[in-house]
């Protein structure tokens, strides 16, 4: 405190208190969850789910086990069921309590079968309820809203097919002149 005149100190103190007072009159940023729903962005990585094919209504998963192979914490376990027409997943377990929500499984899926939802609402008191089997995964897929990202869209974002527009890519905007901020 030495070396500063009283007027300087008083002015600095009043400035700090004025800043707090200014924030007193700003609107609070609290979101009243869960009565108010927050608007999740398009690519939000929420719960995982298995989906059905849109045209046939059949299960989309072919049991290829690529997601099991790529998952870093190894939470997915799949068994394949071979039938003459196409393959299915005989059993599909996903341990949601250990899942990292990294979206790698979504990125590799060739048939867009596993997707993520725009919600993470799965409150539970028992961790065993978060061990999702195939039926629960399908139920989650029907309950919530899906994110934008599916396997094909993510892969096309990185390597667009010839001539087609790239999904998830913003049209180039005219660059604004910026002043160099020191």
């Amino acid at each position: 405190m030495k070396g500063t005149e009283p007027t300087v100190i008083v002015r600095a103190v009043l400035k700090a208190m004025g800043m707090t007072l200014r924030n007193l009159f700003r609107k609070p940023v609290t979101v009243h969850y869960p009565t108010t729903e927050r608007k999740y962005p398009e690519r939000y990585r929420g719960l995982l789910a298995l989906v059905y094919e849109p045209d046939t209504g059949d299960e989309a998963c072919i049991g290829c086990r690529l997601c099991e192979f790529v998952c870093p914490p190894a939470v997915i376990k799949v068994e394949m069921l071979k039938t003459p027409e196409r393959n299915y997943a005989k059993s599909f377990t996903l341990e949601l309590y250990a899942c990292e929500f990294c979206e790698l499984c979504v990125q590799v899926c060739p048939t867009d079968a596993i997707v993520m939802m725009k919600s993470f609402d799965m409150p539970t008191a028992d961790r065993r309820e978060m061990l999702l089997d195939k039926d629960r995964l399908h139920t989650i897929g029907l309950q919530h809203e899906r994110t934008w990202a599916t396997g094909n869209k993510l892969r096309d974002m990185q390597a667009p097919p010839k001539g087609a527009p790239r999904p998830g890519h913003a049209a180039p905007a005219a660059p604004k002149p910026t002043e160099a901020k020191a």
Partner: peptide
Amino acid sequence: GFFQVGGVRYDAPANW
């Protein structure tokens, strides 16, 4: 999990 070997995983969406 934004980075991947060779580039990045996601591209800038509209209005970003």
